[in-house]
């Protein structure tokens, strides 16, 4: 109970909501890292996933290569980058991009590959060009999986962007690392709660986006599929 009271104190202190180390600024920094990293990962990963998915060539190579990003410990990279580049947000964002790429590439690739062969065959057979097949058939049909990949990536990035603070950058990680070194428990827990809330908000916001970009005909089905996945 004492912790709850302390947390309340921490959250309600006026100083907490203003200035360069206030919650709004830290949230903004955190969001910036996340948007930058996820954005770059989408810009890089989506074309890769679409290309290997559409041509059916190089899928394993692409998926395995990007998966390296998942295998390397983020904490290790960020410390390494710190010794090489000093306090610089660019390496931190690159670390986050490496983490964000695998789900996007894999999901996009799998999404495009899993469009029924009969669908792409009939599309080509009716006279759609390769581009048209990709744009009008494969991308819309793969959209539920593509969006699921982006959501997974973004939420992971929100959680991991906390590490940026470890090398002297901003973001919500500041509360956690500073709190730990100064042994201010309520600040550590407060920071962790903010990170969790931001991850949740990200998930919800992207859910909204998903509803906008996934074609209507696939929504009922993807909702059903999500439900089935949860049940099993």
């Amino acid at each position: 109970m004492e912790l709850v009271a302390q947390l309340l104190d921490w959250f309600t202190a006026p100083a907490q909501w203003t200035g360069s180390s206030g919650i709004p600024v830290r949230v903004l920094e955190h969001v910036l890292y996340t948007v930058a990293a996820t954005g770059v990962a989408v810009v890089v990963g989506l074309p890769i996933g679409l290309a290997v998915g559409h041509t059916g060539r190089g899928g394993t190579v692409a998926v395995n290569t990007t998966n390296v990003g998942r295998a390397i410990p983020s904490f290790g990279i960020i410390v390494l980058f710190f010794f090489i580049f000093g306090i610089d947000p660019v390496p931190a964002v690159i670390m986050l991009v490496a983490l964000a790429l695998p789900p996007i590439v894999t999901n996009t690739y799998v999404g495009v590959r899993s469009v029924a062969p009969a669908v792409t065959d009939s599309a080509a057979g009716m006279g759609l060009t390769g581009w048209q097949v990709l744009r009008e058939v494969e991308i819309p049909a793969a959209m539920p999986l593509i969006m699921a990949g982006i959501r997974t990536s973004a939420v992971q990035v929100v959680a991991t962007a906390t590490l940026a603070a470890y090398i002297g950058l901003g973001g919500l990680g500041r509360y956690i690392f500073d709190g730990l070194s100064q042994q201010v428990l309520n600040q550590v827990v407060g920071g962790a709660i903010l990170v969790a809330l931001l991850a949740l908000a990200t998930e919800l916001a992207l859910g909204r986006v998903q509803r906008l970009v996934v074609p209507r005909g696939l929504q009922a089905r993807s909702r059903q599929a999500a439900l089935d996945a949860k049940l099993t």
Binding site: A116, V119, T120, G125, P140
Partner: peptide, 23 residues
């Protein structure tokens, strides 16, 4: 060219291949 040619030829296959995202 294949697209030109194919637009003048109806094509029906066993799997049908209707576009799932379209009405």
């Amino acid at each position: 060219s294949p697209p030109r040619l194919r637009r003048g030829i109806g094509y029906v296959i066993q799997g049908i291949g209707l576009f799932p995202h379209r009405t």
